[in-house]
Design a protein around this nucleic acid. Structure first.
Lengths: 338, 338
DNA sequence: GCCTCCAAGTAATACGTATAACGTCGACTC
DNA sequence: GAGTCGACGTTATACGTATTACTTGGAGGC
């Protein structure tokens, strides 16, 4: 009770158990086989329990030279998607005794543009979404093990990459809509410079170009319901034959597209088919429910963390993109004969 | 280049600058006024820059006895709400040189039921949502400074609390619906044991009890769109006069209620008015847009972090609940004359 | 009876930092 | 010219842990 004000250390435990500090470390670190008798070990464990002893992580990290903590850099948390990525990454991390610290990218997160300063933690590695591009230069400065999420595999300077098979998702969307008979498309694209959106644009163009008689226009919008509403309304009200299918870069944009259609008196899917990408909770809250591409955010996070663990252990990370799946719901139908 | 494989330490910087390690610490810690000449200081800074020196946080934390890192315990991240709380808390934290580590509660986060083990960080304090109740006993074990979010002020054992004025939100909803003429209510309640939901139930009952001729039934549902769909459909299909107003504990439940109404052939708001609580992006994606209570999640997080900083500095945290605001949209209307 | 060896620990040390306590050297005072 | 003082540093130390060496008291072999 002499040191009741400060947290107990391993030395306090040692004193309480009548052993040396080294013995405490041995017992609690589970390295005591053949070094400490079972009875003494039990005495130590009991003392630790009585004092509610918790090892000082800072000291341990210093001694060990690593922290079992990694940083996850994401563009934002405002959507379930990256929340899911975090959850998946944190689960795998916990299974391996790691913790995950989050750095949601700079827009308004404070004066510190430096992800390492803001996340006050000593780190063993970094997982970064390519959408948080502004933080990346700072990250490359530190030579920490790095895994990139949804990033150009050929352009990431040797960092390991883990990607969703977005291109395949877009193929499935295009195939679905073409199969229904659509030929006039509008692509509602995210107004964000990122590889993952480039892939959508490129792949959609490629798929449609392969079918004679198709046309496609593109409108750009910030990733928000209201932003998409404005952009989609303008694009749909433009002169010329109206598109019959509206392919959106993600579900939020699709929700904005619904509102635009409503304003213009168009009915989904009778007058216009709409597709999304993500399969957020939003997708089934819409009326009609949204045909979209399901991305497994948690699996994405898990694979990201697994890849980082592989890098840390100097193993080769698993290769192969994560498959995605088209979910057909009520927002797509054959075009009405005009 | 002798130690090129390992990260440079302050001693390396000292050697490169031709000074002692202490001088490096002084200069980089900005405590050198009157102790080191300007020219020497500049030489040190230059050496640090050249070597891309970053102080070892583990060593610093050990020396300083604190980590400037706090833990945020939330029930889940799958909705924007707690993502917003995190964002707000992290912003204030960053402004004060703190970092925030996240612990989304146990459902499926791994074998470690212990938030401190899972978040591999040495902590200075904890902010915990009362909805993550299962983690709380573990948290109380450690005598860390604690701030509770949305928790019973009288029952939180002396921990500081920061609350949204949910009761006032419910009052506004009740007043709005009563003013429109509604008398038969259905309360779609979250099936989660938490103070914040108890407040909703209690306050709604109190408000309606004050008006003669009102009736209210209650249905419980897990907080998910599909869960709410099932519960709401059953409740609305029950015998007896149908409620004309459906008060939901949050926006997700309201989204499920929309689907239930649709299935039963009821139109919102003509046949039934619906209200939510949260004002997620979901609220304006619904058709008609949802009348709901806007909670400022980021402000909530900011206030939580401010309160924790106050506790850490032995100041009294700001008192007073955070005001909320009814947002009237298209999902509420006078009851149709039956 | 002496050497060996093992069980059961302990003493000592290093990790990288921040800071308190301590030099040293020149200029200035009187 | 002795004493004082400020400017500019340096030396030493502690934070709490994990781990590598070392000690010691016997038990067993021959």
């Amino acid at each position: 009770m002499a040191r009741s004000s400060t947290r107990p250390t391993s030395r306090d435990v040692a004193q309480a158990a009548g052993v040396s500090q080294a013995a405490v470390s041995l017992v609690l670190g589970d390295k005591w086989r053949g070094r400490v008798s079972e009875t003494t070990a039990e005495r130590v464990r009991e003392a630790a329990r009585d004092l509610a002893y918790r090892p000082n992580l800072a000291a341990r990290n210093l001694r060990l030279g690593h922290t079992r903590t990694v940083l996850l850099v994401v563009p934002a948390l405002t959507t379930e998607f990256f929340a899911g990525v975090y959850t998946g990454a944190a689960r795998v991390a916990a299974d391996h005794g790691f913790g995950v610290v989050l750095y949601p990218s700079p827009e308004g997160i404070g004066p510190a543009r430096d992800p390492f300063a803001s996340a006050q933690a000593a780190l063993d590695g970094v997982i970064a979404s390519s959408m948080a591009a502004d933080a990346l230069t700072a990250i490359r400065g530190d030579q920490l093990p790095l895994v990139m999420l949804d990033s150009d595999p050929s352009g990431s300077l040797g960092a390991a990459t883990v990607n969703l098979d977005i291109a395949d998702g877009v193929r499935q969307v295009a195939s679905h809509l073409l199969g229904l008979g659509h030929r006039r498309f509008l692509h509602l694209a995210a107004d964000v410079p990122s590889w993952t959106f480039e892939v959508r644009a490129r792949e959609l163009a490629a798929q449609l170009a392969a079918v004679p008689g198709t046309s496609v226009r593109t409108a750009h919008a910030p990733i928000s319901i209201d932003g998409a509403l404005t952009a989609a309304e303008a694009a749909l009200a433009a002169p010329g034959p109206r598109p019959t299918a509206l392919v959106c870069d993600d579900d939020k944009l699709a929700a904005g597209a619904y509102k635009a259609a409503r304003r213009l008196g168009l009915r989904v899917p009778d007058d216009i088919s709409v597709t999304g990408l993500d399969d957020l909770a939003l997708a089934t809250a819409l009326d009609p429910e949204l045909t979209t591409v399901r991305l497994d955010a948690e699996l994405f996070g898990e694979r990201g963390m697994q890849a980082l663990l592989a890098v840390l252990e100097a193993r080769a990370p698993d290769a192969g993109d994560i498959p995605v799946e088209l979910v057909v719901r009520g927002s797509t139908a054959p075009p009405s004969p005009s």
